[in-house]
Simulated assay, not measured.
Amino acid sequence: MVTHTGPISIGVLGTHSTGKTTLLKRLEMELRANGLIVARTGRLAKRAAAIGLPKMQHHTTASTEWIITQGIADEIAAVAQGAEVVLADRATLDALAYFHAALEYRGETAHRLERERLRLLASTQVPTYNLLFATVLDESVPVDNAHDYDPRYRRLVDRHVHGLLADDGIPHRRVSSDPESQTQAIQQAVQLCLQEAAA
């Protein structure tokens, strides 16, 4: 992870309905209460779907590439617009995990060069994150009935998220659905941001 002074970048990744957005909303409130200028990116899958790209278990190379590159562009724009802290709702590796899970779900494989290209594209952004949070799937927590999630796909995404992080030895903090786990993650992030702001 980066150690230079300047805008702080915190990314979160994990399968759907595991508290990514809620965690970042809480963190954003805490940071703003401490006087920091915060930008939160997100809604990438919805924005991709709005322009006709597939999502969830239907992800393709194109939809994955769009989400990765749009996420990077959003994070760069947030810094350019003066954010002291950028909260990335779906760090770049998240899109890659969703893609790998979609391929496994459908029993398909992508061309080796396409897989490598997407992995390289997602990996280039990883060193810019000062802190990464990976949410952990807890299937005992009920899912909003408004969402028609496929349980098998949700499990596959969770496995691929944590597999990608482990494969590349990427430093991160696992965040469970336990309120104490989330509170500790927020405290860690706030402490980091305040230390950097004071440096």
Rank of each mutant, 00 (worst) to 15 (best):
A80D: 14
C193L: 04
T69E: 08
I51W: 00
T124Y: 11
V161F: 01
R119A: 14
R47L: 14
R155N: 04
A78F: 10
I37N: 13
I67R: 12
A48Y: 01
L53Y: 07
L96M: 07
S63F: 08
G35A: 10
V190R: 06
Y105H: 09
R40T: 12
R174L: 14
A146K: 05
P127R: 05
L120I: 09
Q188T: 15
R112E: 14
R47W: 08
M29I: 05
T61M: 10
H4M: 09
E108L: 12
R159G: 01
D148T: 12
H111R: 13
G6R: 02
R152Q: 15
I186S: 10
S123H: 12
A146G: 00
P127G: 02
D144S: 13
T41Y: 06
T15M: 10
A78P: 09
A189K: 01
A102H: 04
V126H: 00
G19M: 13
K55M: 10
L131T: 02
I68V: 15
A197I: 01
G11C: 09
L120R: 04
D138I: 13
Q57E: 12
A50W: 00
R155V: 13
N130Q: 08
N130Y: 07
V38C: 09
A91Y: 03
V85K: 04
R112N: 05
A39C: 14
E30G: 01
N145D: 15
E65L: 14
A146I: 14
R117K: 08
T109P: 02
V136A: 03
G52F: 07
D94E: 07
A146M: 11
Q191H: 12
R43V: 11
I67S: 13
Q70N: 15
R119S: 14
I68L: 06
S176Y: 09
Q182M: 13
Q70P: 03
P179V: 06
I76K: 08
P179S: 05
I76M: 04
W66F: 15
L121P: 03
T18F: 06
V86H: 07
R112L: 11
P54D: 05
L156P: 03
Y98M: 11
N34R: 10
Q81Y: 08
L27D: 02
A48C: 12
Q57R: 03
P7E: 03
R155C: 12
L36I: 08
T5K: 10
A91I: 00
I37M: 08
H58I: 00
A33T: 03
Y98Q: 03
T15Q: 08
T41I: 08
Q184L: 14
T92G: 01
V175D: 05
C193K: 03
I170W: 04
T64L: 06
K20N: 03
R117H: 11
Q70A: 13
D94A: 11
A146T: 13
L36G: 04
L113S: 15
